[in-house]
């Protein structure tokens, strides 16, 4: 942890393998050793003052929109017959019915599937890199992962359209359309999402694999464990929190993604993020102007659940692997 920061920590988990809890505890303990000459109040005041801009920014930039979402989700919009600002459950009710329900389920399904696949593929890939004796291979794969994990959004969509789209190079080369191939389907979207989720998984899980101590493998061998038994009884259980945490993080990433799908699939695969964008551009029934906010609230609920699972896992793996 004291070495120079990893050049490619594009995920929270990648920068967080060390014992954050431990470090914060020591810091908290040492804070009361005073070398204060100007009196504790002046010093404390200065410190609070320095955090004030961040707090203010947060309240305005983040607090207001969040409040707007929550209030908006439960009130009528300005185009409603009853007038704006009336309390109502209509938005929330509508947001979990019909096409919106389909979109939510489809989003959940896509996120879960891609996160699972990326976890299953990312682990052996990261292990191949970690156990490799070639330093350059590790460096190359991690740098590439850093780039590709950032390669979400539009460029990714266009790259796949150019490759596997209807007029894509590979599609034409292998006459894939004749075999019923289409990129603009659930399967197609899965393949595209994996392109940034697998590198994200590699970045997330590599510190955990690095954290597996040689002593554990040797102690296992010394206690009569075969390689298979080592993985089954030692390595995988120790990695489990990291793997689950990684899965959840990937799920959240896939769930929140908008640009890739927006640029690629048109309306063939319904997704919550797209429904919100549609609703915001006025593409809703009269009186449902605040539907977008209700949909956003649904999304936030899912994301909160994701984080509620992720953070404890993250803490546990940090404790084991630091």
């Amino acid at each position: 942890m004291t070495t120079a920061p990893t050049p490619v920590p594009t995920t929270p988990a990648a920068t967080e393998p060390g014992g954050g809890a431990g470090a914060s505890r020591t810091a908290a303990r040492t804070t009361h050793t005073p070398t204060r000459r100007r009196g504790p109040l002046a010093r404390l005041g200065g410190a609070w003052l320095a955090t004030l801009p961040l707090l203010l920014f947060f309240v305005i930039g983040f607090g207001l929109p969040t409040v707007a979402i929550v209030i908006g989700a439960f009130t009528t919009s300005s185009d409603a017959e009853t007038g704006a600002g009336q309390f109502t459950f209509d938005n929330v009710t509508a947001s979990v019915q019909g096409a919106y329900l389909t979109a939510m389920l489809s989003s959940l399904k896509l996120s879960a599937l891609t996160a699972l696949l990326a976890t299953l593929i990312g682990l052996p890939l990261a292990q191949a890199v970690v156990t490799s004796r070639q330093g350059w291979l590790r460096q190359a794969v991690l740098t590439a992962s850093g780039v590709l994990a950032n390669f979400g959004g539009l460029p990714l969509a266009f790259a796949f359209v150019a490759t596997l789209g209807n007029a894509g190079e590979i599609t034409r080369l292998l006459h894939l359309t004749d075999h019923g191939w289409s990129l603009y389907t659930f399967t197609g979207l899965t393949i595209v999402y994996l392109y940034f989720l697998i590198p994200l998984m590699v970045l997330t899980i590599t510190p955990a694999l690095d954290g597996l101590r040689v002593q554990w493998r040797e102690a296992a061998q010394n206690n009569r464990a075969t390689t298979y038994q080592y993985w089954r009884h030692v390595a995988l259980p120790i990695l489990l929190p990291s793997l689950l945490g990684g899965f959840v993080l990937l799920f959240g990433s896939a769930f929140a993604a908008y640009a890739t799908a927006a640029a690629m699939v048109g309306a063939t695969v319904p997704l919550v993020s797209r429904s919100i964008a549609d609703a915001l551009s006025g593409n809703v029934l009269v009186g449902q102007g605040n539907l977008a906010l209700a949909l956003s609230l649904n999304m936030i609920v899912v994301a909160v659940l994701v984080m509620a699972v992720y953070l404890p896992l993250q803490r546990r793996s940090a404790r084991w692997l630091s």
Binding site: Q215, A219, P237, R319
Partner: peptide, 19 residues
Amino acid sequence: PAHKRDAGMVFQSYSLFPH
């Protein structure tokens, strides 16, 4: 092979399985 040898080893530190 190591996992069939009849020798118990104590390592320098941190060798207990954390889970």
